[in-house]
Design a protein around this nucleic acid. Sequence first.
DNA 1: GTCTATACTTGGATAGAC
DNA 2: GTCTATCCAAGTATAGAC
Lengths: 217, 217
Amino acid sequence: MAKSGNKSRARTDGEATRERIIEAAADTLCAEGFAGTSARSIAAKGGFNQALVFYHFGSVNDLLMAALAHVGHVRMATYTETVGNLDNLSDLVSAARSIFAEDLDRGYMKVLSEMISGASTYPELGPRIWQEIEPWISFTKGSISRVIGDTALTSAVPAGEVAFAIVSLYLGMELLTQLAGQRSSADSLFGAVERLGSLFAPFIQSTQSDGKGEQET
Amino acid sequence: MAKSGNKSRARTDGEATRERIIEAAADTLCAEGFAGTSARSIAAKGGFNQALVFYHFGSVNDLLMAALAHVGHVRMATYTETVGNLDNLSDLVSAARSIFAEDLDRGYMKVLSEMISGASTYPELGPRIWQEIEPWISFTKGSISRVIGDTALTSAVPAGEVAFAIVSLYLGMELLTQLAGQRSSADSLFGAVERLGSLFAPFIQSTQSDGKGEQET
DNA sequence: GTCTATACTTGGATAGAC
DNA sequence: GTCTATCCAAGTATAGAC
């Protein structure tokens, strides 16, 4: 009880602080960008001391990587739960639409895009960030394969390349919508994709419900 | 009056220096990223004095904006010349493919993506950068309209939204390919789009060759 | 127009008190 | 585990010599 010298409480406090710092780091990255994110600006936003960054994480960049990984886990949980079991195209697109809106609002994509930009300045971050992104490309590829299945489309355009394109598109839209200050363009794009999906849905469904392989090109 | 005492020579030297500085700024942005680009790092790369940045451009950010605008003009000239008159889909895609490869190699896209990231740290840059991007979205939209024309596709997906998506995709691919250190993914994606284009080309061509005006949705 | 020198500010990182 | 104090490196920007 209270704030006295209790071992498990002390450990708990340390963990809690770590999390506060990670939260503040992500917030600062969103608000100030990579170039504006320093141990001092993070500490100011989180209301703790600047030295804690180095005590808990060793360096600013290591903290930022921890923040990126944290955001990645949170989002992967949401995505898995929300789109992990959808098996038709229009459900997938509309789920992607609403989650992407949430990504934008909460700045999850921004944390990623700022870190990628930071990797130009600190190249040693590059491979570490790539490791955080790869699961997303795999996840996207899996979702596509599940929904599109084995149609003429996938023989012309392999799911892996579509996944790469979609992740790229998400990143690019994040950059542009932040810049233009209006996320309407991105959102109406999803509407367009939904209409496109409806156009092709019968074709995809019928081909897929046959349940079997098509030829590879 | 310096070494020649010739007025126009003096003016020429000043202009030449301005250009050297702009070149060095773009190079530094590519090599070090926004966070690593300072008056000092730019001057080191260009082999001139750090104070010249402030004499000629007033501030680092103003120099960087000048560099961005410069790169934009250079690339717009190339794009206009190369794809400005193409009127069928496969030519357009393969032209876009080779120019995008050049964009990557020479770091033109990188200058842009780094500046966009920098706008998070210096919000006053946002609108100025957006001004540089808008012409590209218009250009892309124009190219699409010219090539796709008035098909069922454009009624489902307006050219403006496709243009927004394509510019986003370019940006996103720039980020990812830099990070992964392999541009094969991006390049093979173009291959996929080319195959897709072939799939739809007959349909598009036949509809378009009927012929006429555009309608907005 | 270009360079040197310098004032001022911010940031990474550590030592040591609590 | 957290805070204060501090060192040092790097950056912006300006003044003034050439």
